[in-house]
Every structure is written in structure tokens, then in C-alpha cells.
């Protein structure tokens, strides 16, 4: 009994850490720091899976943890860092809204999640807060995607959403079958690589990865001239 109590406490600490890295994303000014925040987030996710793996000695959880570390903790951050360093442009994030407003919105999102999930789905003894935090991380990731100008910050927001989703899956079900986790991680990896290819192409075509400057196609609803 005492051991499981400890476990839940450790898990709560780690999930709060995951939430904090997501909140920190709201105020980070440089692209490098965003990638760093993502790396910390992934490592915390790895720890969160590792702790129950060690306590229950479940080989399936070890596999899930090491896969998370390999893809989300190492390969994707290295790839993103390479793209950021390749850009040779302004490394500022340049959000549409001020950092203060962004932080406030994140706070409101977290409050809404906590208020709406206070009853309803009961979590199977894994951690009291992991589910709420995971939904909050997904929403903050979405907020980051909407309010940032650069292509790469969109990808970082997407990755935060993915991490939040993994946390949700983990806290709801304490681990999916390994083959599913492997497949999903592979999909995420491929997705990030393809998005990286597109970021490079966008830079070549538009000489900028500012998505504002790259809107050329839209519905032409006015009469065309000529």
C-alpha cells in the first residue's frame, strides 16, 4: 500500500513537470529553447513510463519507455535542432499574441480541463492528475500551433500534442499493446521527417519559414481581372 502511494506521488511530480514544460513554451523567445523544452518534455514522459516499469517489473513497459526515449527523446529533437540551425534566419518565435495573453489563455485552458474532468472518467489508479494534465498539454499544444507564426513552432506544438496524447493513453489504459505503441511512434517519426522536408522546401520557395508570407492559394471570390 505504501509503495503504491509513493509511486503515485512520483508520477504526479513528473506529470506536473510535463505540464510546466508545456506552459514554459508560451514564453520562450527562441526556436532553440522551444526544441529544448520539447526534449525535456519527452524525457519526463520517458521517466513517467520508466517508474511503473521498474516498480512492476513489466517488460512491456520497459519496451514502451525505451522506444519513447529513442524516438521522442533523441531522434526527433536532434532532427529539429538540425533544422533550426540550418535556418540561418531570425531565430525568434514571433507569436501573433503577446506572451502574457498566451500564458493567460493557457491558464484558462488548464482551469477548464480541471473543472470539467473533476468527475466523470475515473482513472485506474495510475495517478490522480496525469489524465487532466495530459488533456491540458494537448490543448496548450494546440494553442501554440494556432498562435505562432513559424512553421517549426507549429511542428513543436504538434509534438507537444502528441506527447500529451501519449500521456493520456498511458494514464487511461496504463499502456497499449506494444505493437500499437511502436506503430504510432513510427508514424510520428515519419510525420516529423516529412514535415521537416516541407519546412526546408518552404524555405527554398519563399525564402522564409514565416507562414504569413506563404499564403498564396485561397478561394478567389471576387471577379478576376484580365
Amino acid at each position: 500500500m505504501e509503495k503504491s502511494f509513493d509511486l503515485s506521488l512520483v508520477n504526479d511530480f513528473i506529470s506536473v513537470g510535463i505540464l510546466l514544460t508545456a506552459i514554459a513554451l508560451n514564453t520562450l523567445e527562441r526556436l532553440e529553447s522551444c526544441v529544448k523544452a520539447y526534449t525535456y518534455n519527452s524525457w519526463l514522459l520517458f521517466l513517467l513510463i520508466l517508474v511503473p516499469a521498474v516498480t512492476t517489473n513489466n517488460p512491456h513497459l520497459y519496451v514502451a519507455a525505451s522506444l519513447t526515449l529513442a524516438t521522442k527523446g533523441i531522434v526527433i529533437p536532434l532532427f529539429l535542432r538540425k533544422i533550426v540551425y540550418q535556418q540561418k534566419l531570425v531565430h525568434q518565435v514571433q507569436p501573433y499574441i503577446s506572451n502574457l495573453l498566451s500564458l493567460t489563455l493557457s491558464g484558462i485552458l488548464i482551469t477548464i480541463v480541471y473543472a470539467s474532468l473533476s468527475k466523470g472518467i475515473s482513472v485506474t489508479g495510475f495517478s490522480n492528475h496525469a489524465l487532466k494534465i495530459s488533456i491540458a498539454v494537448i490543448l496548450i499544444g494546440l494553442l501554440i500551433m494556432i498562435t505562432r507564426r513559424k512553421a517549426i513552432t507549429m511542428v513543436v506544438g504538434l509534438l507537444f500534442m502528441e506527447n500529451g496524447l501519449f500521456l493520456t493513453g498511458f494514464s487511461l489504459t496504463s499502456g497499449m499493446p506494444v505493437i500499437i505503441e511502436l506503430g504510432i511512434l513510427f508514424d510520428v517519426l515519419m510525420c516529423v521527417i516529412i514535415l521537416g522536408v516541407f519546412i526546408i522546401q518552404i524555405r527554398h520557395k519563399f525564402y522564409s519559414v514565416d507562414l504569413d508570407k506563404s499564403t498564396t492559394i485561397h478561394d478567389q471570390l471576387t471577379t478576376l481581372k484580365g
Partner: peptide
């Protein structure tokens, strides 16, 4: 070209987010 890269960017981002 410009337009098709933009279209595919939009496509993959929107579909991936909703598939999440």
C-alpha cells in the same frame, strides 16, 4: 512549386492534428 508545397503543408498539419 509555391502553391503545392503550401497545400501539402496545410494538408499534413490539419489532418495530423485532427487525427491526434
Amino acid at each position: 512549386d509555391k502553391a503545392s508545397v503550401e497545400a501539402s503543408w496545410k494538408y499534413i498539419i490539419l489532418c495530423t492534428v485532427s487525427l491526434i
